[in-house]
Simulated scan of single mutants.
Amino acid sequence: MGRLILCTGRTAKRPFYISELGLSLYTAEELCYYIYNNIFMIEDSFVSPQLLAFIGSELGLTQLEDQLRQHMGHAASGQLLLTILQEIHYYDESELTAFKKQLEKKKSASSFELAKNKADFLVKQKKYNNALKVYDSLLDDPVQKGMTEEFCARIWHNKGVAYAGLFYVEKAAQCMLKAYETLKDNEIVREIYMLSLFDEEAMDWEEIFAGVSPKQLYSWKEEFENIRKQLMQTGKALEARTVFQKDAVKRPAFIAGLLGEWKQEYREMVL
């Protein structure tokens, strides 16, 4: 979940499952970590009878379950989340103060700002298809929703990031170009150039980069090559190299297993 979590309490036999992220929570500490770090992602329906049953039956925190049950339907969802953090004592007072400020920020945010934050979080979690659905819903009649042109452009940019995560180079570039029309941010041009190096046939890149100096393009290409070399020593590339270093007898089984893992990871990204 992003960092090592020291769990000192009870571990659930039946975890609390967050379907949108494909995430299972087994301990009170994991529940606190999820709440604390995903406040803009969490909807009012999160504190549900199912969550209360998990807290009471699986984690053995029956007093907290009763306390939450008494206030459900009366207290704001943010207050219920704060109660969970306060009663489990995973975060100290300074961290809880910071969380309260985030709750206030969330309270003052518009519905479309909250939706964008949710989609951005889904992108970070590599749940690209789910993120794209949220971005598309936001871009459906944005004027009616009261969104500014700049805000829409940032949605277009992040939609492009989601498409890039799915290796849809042309769609990613088109979204980012639309964002650039408003934002005029050269960082977006750099990102589009990086995309072009993944698929040189996807678009008329020469026309797109006509206004960029050869020196700048060369610098970006060098940066791309350096990143590529680093990636070859980590992640999937390193896994593949390790597999092919196995002896000839064991290699097919390792390849099959690795491909199975990669396919499952891809399914999780697109479902």
Rank of each mutant, 00 (worst) to 15 (best):
K107C: 06
I84Q: 02
L85C: 09
V169C: 02
W156H: 14
Y128F: 15
H89G: 09
I155M: 12
A153M: 06
A153K: 06
R154S: 12
V123S: 01
K178P: 03
L177Y: 10
A153S: 12
D204E: 04
P142R: 06
L166N: 09
E223D: 12
Q102W: 04
L197W: 02
S196M: 01
K221W: 00
T182W: 05
D120V: 07
N186I: 13
N129M: 15
L139N: 03
V169W: 00
M203H: 00
L139M: 11
G211M: 14
V212D: 08
I88H: 05
K124P: 02
K118Q: 07
D185N: 15
S94P: 04
E87Q: 15
F112V: 03
E87H: 15
R154K: 15
T148K: 06
E222R: 10
L197T: 03
V143M: 12
M203A: 03
E223M: 07
E87N: 15
K215S: 15
E150P: 02
H89D: 14
Y163T: 02
K118F: 00
Y135M: 04
D204C: 02
E207R: 13
V134R: 00
R190M: 14
V134K: 01
F209Q: 05
W220R: 07
K133G: 00
E181R: 15
E206L: 06
E187I: 13
I88G: 04
S94C: 09
D141R: 13
S137E: 11
D141C: 04
F224T: 02
K133V: 06
C152K: 11
A98E: 08
D136S: 14
D92C: 13
F151W: 09
S110G: 11
K101Q: 14
Q125I: 03
F209V: 06
I188R: 10
Y168I: 07
A98V: 05
K100M: 11
K133F: 00
Q86N: 14
F121L: 12
M194Y: 12
I155S: 08
Y163K: 06
V143F: 13
E150C: 04
P214I: 10
L122Y: 08
L195A: 00
L85H: 05
Q144H: 13
A173V: 01
T97F: 07
Q125F: 04
E95P: 05
A131M: 09
L166G: 09
L195T: 00
L166S: 11
E207S: 15
M147E: 06
W220Q: 01
E223C: 02
L195K: 00
F209E: 03
A109N: 02
V161L: 10
K215N: 13
F167I: 07
T182C: 12
E170V: 06
D199E: 06
K105F: 03
F209T: 00
